[in-house]
Simulated assay, not measured.
Amino acid sequence: MKADKIFWGIIFVFVGGIFLLENFNVIDFSWGHIWRFWPLLLIISGVNIIFARSSSKISVIAMVVITVAALAFICYEGLNDGGKNRNHIGWVFSDRDGNDWDDSHDPGRTDNVSNYSEDFDAKIKNATLNIYGGASAFQIENGNDRLFESRVKESITRYFLKRTDTDSTAVLEFRSKKNDGSFNFKDDEYGKVKMKINTQPLWDVNLKMGAGKADFDFSQNKVHNISLKGGAAEFDVKLGNLYNDVNLSAETGLADVNIQIPTTAGCKILVSSGLSSKTFKGFIKMDDGSYESPNFKTAAQKIHITLKGGLSNFEVNRY
């Protein structure tokens, strides 16, 4: 057996094993380490290229030893840092009124809680939310009182909110910033960011982050365009049926992407990735390589999904 086949087998076993153990809460792995150690991934990829055409036992053994050693190092550091972050990102938002935090499990915490908000004006018909974050856990749900509000539990990273209005359109920029004044896109200190967006405007939402998690529930919002970009990340997105033309794109390095769409919506999926796993239950694979729901041509609501990933898990479910 050639070395390149063994190499990719090891990679898939490593990534699949980490995802599986995390899903069953056996381990707490910090995916930010994949992003921070990306040069190491280049090194082991280069080793694979060197030995790819060789089938000698020495080449195979050398490739296996180097690959396993590199992944073992990443795994050790990820588990070590994940254990530290388990307490660091374990804050709970109150589901009663959105104003309380439950920090009773860690009464010694000294981190700051910050609130951000923008008032809603009835003249606003279209709104854009641009989120630029480091290693954070983002959550979006519907809100009715304000155009936008967010509650952030912060460490060394702070956020700032900027709003620009033009006629009936509002553009919000929500960007992370370190306390030393520098902008941050791949910070290793996780924070939890809970956001609410008004249900009246038609929204475009763009997220760019280094590593982290995003849980976006748009089932009660009108959304037109959604763009998600992340290195090592986990994306969970739920779409509703309040707008008939929805475009969602996800561009990832190493990620777990789960998208939920209504059964009444017609959906077309385009995937650009040779190494990612795909689960599109109930979809039909077309001659051009795309996937369509059975009602795509007849449904009033059309959802177009574009997925690009290096080594990711893509899943689209209908509810």
Rank of each mutant, 00 (worst) to 15 (best):
I305S: 00
Y243M: 14
S176L: 05
T298P: 03
S249K: 07
V68G: 04
I269H: 00
D28F: 15
F120C: 09
P201T: 12
V152L: 07
G210C: 01
G266E: 02
V152I: 06
D187T: 13
E154S: 09
N99M: 06
K278N: 11
K196I: 07
S30A: 11
I89F: 13
F218R: 01
N313R: 13
A233P: 07
A122H: 09
S249R: 07
A211D: 04
I261V: 15
F24E: 03
L311T: 01
E292R: 05
Q200F: 15
I89Y: 10
V64D: 04
A265N: 00
W38Y: 14
K222M: 13
G181L: 03
N184G: 09
L41D: 00
N317E: 13
N112Q: 09
A70Y: 08
R163A: 05
G282Y: 02
S227L: 02
Y243G: 14
Y76T: 15
A52K: 13
D204E: 13
F93T: 09
K285G: 03
A127Y: 02
N258L: 12
Q200M: 13
I305R: 00
Y159T: 11
V205D: 08
I74T: 05
I269Q: 00
K285M: 12
S272T: 04
N112S: 08
D97Y: 05
W91V: 06
D95V: 06
N126R: 13
I269D: 01
A62T: 14
G181S: 05
L172V: 03
D145W: 01
G143N: 08
N295Q: 00
A70S: 14
L71A: 03
E77F: 15
E173H: 11
V113Y: 09
G181W: 07
N198S: 03
Y190I: 10
